[in-house]
Write a protein that binds this DNA or RNA. Structure first.
Lengths: 108, 108
DNA sequence: ATCGTATATCGTCGTTTTACGATAAATGTG
DNA sequence: CACATTTATCGTAAAACGACGATATACGAT
């Protein structure tokens, strides 16, 4: 039927959107999402699409350095992307990874 | 339309199946799922419906006490239920909680 | 060139996680 | 009753996490 039924997630040629994460990769994403502050960051990024770090600092009751660390975790997991814009960094969701997480979660 | 649009997750009267988890609850479930061994336990339980602890010990390359700890984490998160049957304990998924997790993940 | 702003990184501290072996508790079996 | 089986719990050690303040870095503005 669809590509997801033909290729599995471990196939190197599988760059399609239907890809499903294996247990380790899925656990890695879950771990990155396993903190309330990081969930709120994801929710906020979903709502406003893109924003700078400072905006998140104002929303969360955490120090700037702590927020920066949480963003680092999310970035390492591939859930968010950050691009430097002059003195600030603009963050946005990586919808591709997020969708892959959702599909995998749905398949459990 | 459906109940999910009328009641939100924080409503005390919201015991319906469409309930969505708040950020903290969702993060808690994600944290519990944030380890490859625990994902494999969930997958195995989904495949065979119910099994005793010893069966999981044979599947995973971990000591019995470690597996028992992982099961404890999953149970604390509400993802699995365990009932004592004589000298052994039989585990199975809590589909309700799992579905709630899935729906919340899908709504992110 | 200096200043102010925004962010990342460093160092630190206390807590939590993960893993294991050893042991206790519960329950069938001989 | 003694014994084997199954699982949970305890104790422990190493690693990772989460939070913070202090500091470094990068860049625009004056």
């Amino acid at each position: 039927m669809c590509a997801a039924l033909i290729f599995n997630a471990k196939s190197p040629m599988n760059q399609n959107a239907e890809a499903i994460l294996d247990a380790t990769a899925f656990a890695g994403i879950c771990k990155a999402l396993g903190h309330p502050a990081r969930i709120r960051i994801i929710e906020h990024l979903k709502a406003i699409d893109r924003c700078i770090c400072g905006e998140i600092v104002q929303i969360l009751p955490l120090a700037q350095s702590t927020v920066s660390q949480h963003l680092k975790v999310l970035k390492a997991a591939g859930l968010v992307k950050g691009e430097v814009e002059g003195p600030r960094t603009c963050y946005c969701l990586d919808r591709e990874i997020l969708d892959r997480f959702k599909r995998t979660a749905g398949s459990i």
